[in-house]
Design a protein around this nucleic acid. Structure first.
Lengths: 201, 201
DNA sequence: GAACTTTGTGAGGACATCCTCATATTCTCG
DNA sequence: CGAGAATATGAGGATGTCCTCACAAAGTTC
């Protein structure tokens, strides 16, 4: 009843040998680097393979398609992000809201610095729109949870909305760091803390 | 003394006849639409020409290059943005800070809704980095001016930093509107107003 | 060590897009 | 009107990128 006559959908293939795992790791690292530097479209599979010290055929052995490479990287980063969030949530429970949110900013900032391709990969236009919405919603929910379990707790009705804003502010703070205008950056980050303090009081 | 022997840099050519002006207008409208819908890379010159009801050769007659088409659109939008800003600054002088900023949000929001390609064109990776920084700096300066001339005036030292944040919040509010998650959107916008009110008090 | 599986290689096919160019049409102006 | 300028056209050249494929090498298992 299910023998798709000829058109198997291409999917990434997990390596089975040690050598293969090393290759895949190198390929993903190279991909992350090049996507971050040039953006999705300008990145070429040839360059990814070259940076990984592999041949183009070897790259396609494990990632049969450019979108699939991007997807694999994106999913890997989403997992790491989830684990970062778990940590923050655990740390923040019961602390004052401003401190909890500051923790969010710090950890999230570290994460995005360690994964400079994340923004590029998350904004790709060919991602399933529904999945994107779900991811955003889950993130929102987790942060809302942090805000309602802080001290003093935010009313549940406002928590989700506040979470949305916190997320955007995190994004803003990362963009600030990337825009390397030193003096402005520091002042703006300080002002942002001031704003959050005023808001949570 | 200045007869660059053969390599004239390609530049956009202004139309001289009425027919030409109409063409250019149609081409730019089509370009803006397609860039907005598909992003810079996925947009094709052929499709732009088709949507404008022109031949591909006609498009290249006025815009000898894809980057030049994007640049022309970007500059046109920057000018409109500048004029919008002038209006807001004039209106806001002397008003309470929160109201002035709300005006900024509204007008800017309208502008970005009317020019959905703006974000795409402004984020292009091949834009002169220095020019980008200058544009941002001028924008910051203008908004800082609005904040220091409001009532009560923000101290000049904080105004620039606050302007940076206001800009990011505007960006956030536009992204919210685009993400069409109705209920969340309204709540988040309300929460954002609350945050601004707290901040400016 | 023989059969089999996994991994490696790089030339080149298929295709899409940017842009050119020779030529035709429309418009301006004396 | 007639000469010259401005605009219009679309086939196709040049280029670059994704991906395939036939075959070779390394590793595993019995």
């Amino acid at each position: 009843m299910s023998s798709q006559s000829s058109s198997e959908k291409p999917a990434i293939k997990a390596p089975r040998l040690e050598r293969g795992r090393a290759r895949v790791a190198a390929l993903m690292a190279a991909g992350a680097g090049i996507f971050a530097e040039k953006g999705y479209d300008a990145a070429t599979m040839t360059e990814v393979a070259a940076r990984a010290g592999a041949s183009i055929g070897s790259l396609y052995q494990f990632f049969p398609t450019k979108p699939l490479l991007a997807q694999a990287l994106h999913e890997e980063m989403l997992e790491k992000m989830a684990s970062v969030l778990e940590t923050v949530l655990a740390e923040g429970r019961g602390k004052p809201a401003a401190a909890a949110v500051q923790g969010l900013f710090d950890r999230f900032g570290e994460f995005l610095e360690a994964h400079p391709a994340f923004a590029t990969l998350a904004e790709r236009r060919d991602i399933d729109k529904e999945k994107k919405k779900q991811t955003r919603a889950r993130l929102r929910g987790l942060i809302a949870g942090l805000l309602t379990s802080a001290e003093p707790p935010l009313p549940a009705a406002r928590a989700e909305a506040a979470a949305v804003i916190v997320l955007h502010l995190i994004r803003a703070s990362v963009m600030l760091k990337e825009s390397d205008e030193g003096p402005v950056r520091e002042a703006a980050l300080a002002e942002m803390r001031r704003m959050l303090a005023a808001y949570f009081a």
